[in-house]
Design a protein around this nucleic acid. Structure first.
Lengths: 196, 196
DNA sequence: TACCTTCACATACCAGCGGTATGTGAAATT
DNA sequence: AATTTCACATACCGCTGGTATGTGAAGGTA
């Protein structure tokens, strides 16, 4: 029975744990949320949690994966709305800035992520979810001669870090014109990649 | 008695706690280090720790302050070796990239810092220690007409984030040419700030 | 249908953690 | 010499993440 009562209940329990833990992690931060609080919100017990995940970090890893995929999807959608590779890069960057400005997304993806899983694992997940697309876009632009030839990986890290930090600042500053100012500065920096 | 036996012993105890906790935080990460381990390494008891600090986050805050000041000092020294404001900016950025590539510095300053203290408090400390100097340098360059007029704060966050992430990547990648590749990319990006 | 197995949890429990309340003895003050 | 202060040390506590075990319904088998 592929769709039996058990399988359906299982998925329901798992998604409830993911949903509530994501809400609590985003609102209070990883360290400030206890497993008791999570299982109470999800209306299950610790036994259920440890049946689905190996521990608190593993639960967080699953939540982080969800958040990263959602952001990556928004970025990809924005990029695919354009045909010109350069326009795709710009649209993707702007979509990331806007998506990343969600405070809930940030705490999980940018603040707690590296600390909980370690920077190496966090970077591997980030690479798979979004940085890889950025690197591929930059590589394509180099090959097309749109931007000057150069090693792509360092450039990817610089731009990724710049946008991460900018998104964090945007969420904290709250000024209405800050997004456009940041965007203008980022466009200027990206413009340096094109040959004179 | 300003320099009595008590005052001297006090400073010795405090510095031992800072030294050992910094070593352990850097090596294992904030979460993985227990207070018992710290006080054992410092050869004191938990009573001494709580006499000097209000708790584990406060101890970490003191350690972070030390690390930030050391990095800021290196950056300032590198910048002051030049007279031209643009050269000062470049030298400071490069010094930060090199200093930040120390893995021990990173875990405390870039990974655990925001997660333990919260991004807002971390950013305030970072602002006071180093980002303020970067902002001031950029402001001076704008006023001198060396770089095009623009809001300085978003640009500061973009560059700060780019260099933070680049430093993390440099420490993890370990490739010998990576530092120069990253530096070249950063120089290219910074070049975009100058008027055409 | 009767029986057995599996599985998705629930319950009970534990070691270790950060944190606190209190004790103590030497140094400093009077 | 008596007293106070201070820089810790000791003993203790509640809570947390984690684990070992129990349980009952769902699913398979005769």
């Amino acid at each position: 029975m592929i769709n039996g009562v058990r399988a359906r209940q299982r998925e329901q329990t798992r998604s409830a744990l993911l949903r509530e833990s994501r809400r609590l992690f985003a609102a209070e931060g990883y360290g400030a949320v206890g497993l008791a609080e999570i299982v109470r919100a999800a209306q299950v017990t610790k036994g259920a949690l440890y049946h689905h995940f190996t521990g608190k970090p593993d639960l967080f890893r699953a939540v982080l994966g969800q958040v990263q995929q959602e952001v990556a999807r928004k970025v990809a959608d924005a990029a695919e709305a354009h045909d010109d590779p350069w326009d795709q890069l710009m649209a993707g960057c702007r979509a990331f800035l806007v998506s990343g400005a969600d405070p809930d997304v940030q705490r999980i993806m940018l603040v707690d992520g590296p600390a909980v899983l370690g920077w190496n694992e966090w970077r591997a997940l980030d690479e798979a979810a979004s940085a890889r697309h950025l690197a591929e876009a930059l590589t394509a632009l180099v090959e097309a001669g749109v931007i000057v030839p150069q090693p792509v990986e360092p450039l990817t890290r610089l731009l990724s870090g710049a946008m991460n930090e900018a998104a964090l600042w945007l969420a904290a500053s709250g000024g209405p014109g800050d997004l456009e100012d940041t965007w203008a500065a980022l466009v200027r920096l990206l413009g340096a990649l094109r040959p004179a």
